[in-house]
Design a protein around this nucleic acid. Structure first.
Lengths: 127, 127
DNA sequence: CATAGGGTTTCCACCAACTGGAAGGTCAAG
DNA sequence: CTTGACCTTCCAGTTGGTGGAAACCCTATG
């Protein structure tokens, strides 16, 4: 399989597949005579795994760890859970921040008449 | 006022104040004989304004626009409200995404025993 | 067999919004 | 006069890619 086949199979852009190879996250199986990267089902599965992990917001380094655990049959679910819990806590933290931002900005936007006069509670708040 | 005084007054790192000057967001009032940036109350107020806007997640470019409106006495509150509404919608969108991520990951983490055995619903989901 | 089109390679640059650090000039105190 | 705390510029690195150029490769068609 060439890189574009792999990228389609994994639902990732070609550039991204190449990038993952560059950073040593998912290496190609090998190279053709012409120097083309070749991919087999094993690598496709890893690429899909990484795509899903990235969709959860795991960093490249975390994906590397998760991928390591995925491939290690003597992993412990505790190790996996620990990484996932960390990410979950980050998400919760971000949610709290966004909620607070949302509430404040929402109040300001509601209080702003949005007409052609200059007085504006949003500007007042920022100043 | 030297840059470190300004940075304290605006509650921003020195590096950031210098960066804002570099990108033309908040220029220093001038330079001393030795070439030191000087800041007056006007610039401090702008720096504080930008810090607050950044805390809301407005981009540098949006801060530039807001700062322009802040300084323009014939602004319309409609212009301000439009920028703020755009940002508010981005926040809402991000909240929806995070909520979905949270729910999914939370379910997986709950379902994972986190013991020393290898079977793990998180890995299963990603694979 | 030449050539046109696609696919592939490497490498370099860019995005946002800083941050860290090096090398060197400045200033005030002791 | 020296020491230490400032300040300056400039370059590099961060995250996770993306865009593009120059050049090589492969296949199909005329």
């Amino acid at each position: 399989m060439n890189i574009s086949q792999a990228s389609k199979a994994a639902a990732l852009p070609v550039k991204t597949v190449r990038y993952y190879a560059d950073v040593g996250l998912v290496a190609a199986q090998g190279r053709s005579d012409a120097g083309y990267r070749t991919y087999s089902d094993t690598e496709i599965r890893k690429l899909i795994f990484v795509r899903r992990a990235r969709e959860f917001g795991f960093s490249i380094e975390e994906c590397r760890e998760l991928l390591g655990l995925y491939q290690k049959d003597d992993r412990t679910s505790a190790d996996v859970k620990q990484i996932a819990t960390k990410r979950l806590n980050e998400i919760k933290q971000k949610q709290r921040e966004l909620q607070s931002l949302h509430d404040d900005l929402s109040n300001l936007v509601s209080a702003c008449r949005g007409d052609n006069r200059p007085d504006c509670p949003i500007i007042d708040y920022l100043a």
